[in-house]
Simulated scan of single mutants.
Amino acid sequence: MGIESKITSKGQTTIPAEIREFLALHPGDRIGYEIRDGRVEIVPKNRSALDFAGILHDPGRKPVSVEEMNEAIGAAVTERYERARDRN
C-alpha cells in the first residue's frame, strides 16, 4: 500500500512529509480536493498564475479562438455530466 495518514475525531489529518514535498506545500498553503472516477485527488492551490507563465505556448500550434474554447468547455461539461449520471 502507499503512504497513509490517520484521521482524527475532528476529521483532521496530517499530510505526510513526502506528499507535502511532492506538491511543494508549505504552512499556510491551501489544497483542494477533486473527485474523479471514484478517487479523490489533492490539488495544491498554492500556485500563482505567474508560476505557469509560458507553459502553454507552443510555437507550432495556431491560436485557438474563443468560440473553439467555448465548444471544448461545453463538450467537457457534457462528458463530466454524463459520467456522473452513469455512476448514479
Rank of each mutant, 00 (worst) to 15 (best):
E41R: 06
V66A: 05
R83G: 06
S9D: 13
K45V: 00
A84R: 05
G54D: 02
Y33H: 03
V40A: 05
E71F: 07
T14K: 12
V43A: 02
I15K: 06
K6A: 06
R30E: 11
A84N: 15
E21Q: 08
S65R: 13
G74C: 03
V66R: 06
K10R: 13
R80N: 08
H57M: 04
D37I: 01
G60P: 00
E41M: 08
I31C: 12
I15E: 04
P63F: 12
V77N: 08
T78M: 07
A72L: 15
S65P: 01
S48M: 09
V77L: 14
V43Q: 06
L50V: 10
E18I: 11
E67T: 03
R47F: 07
E21V: 15
R83V: 06
R85V: 12
D58T: 01
A75K: 10
I55K: 11
I31E: 02
R30I: 02
F22I: 03
R85Q: 10
P16G: 05
D58I: 01
R85L: 14
P59I: 02
E18R: 08
K62R: 15
K10N: 08
G54C: 02
K62W: 09
I42W: 00
T14Y: 07
I31L: 09
V77I: 14
A75E: 15
M69L: 10
I35D: 05
A76Y: 13
G32P: 04
R80S: 09
F22C: 15
A72R: 10
D86V: 03
P27M: 01
A72N: 14
I55S: 07
P63K: 11
R85G: 09
I15F: 11
T14V: 08
G38S: 02
L25G: 07
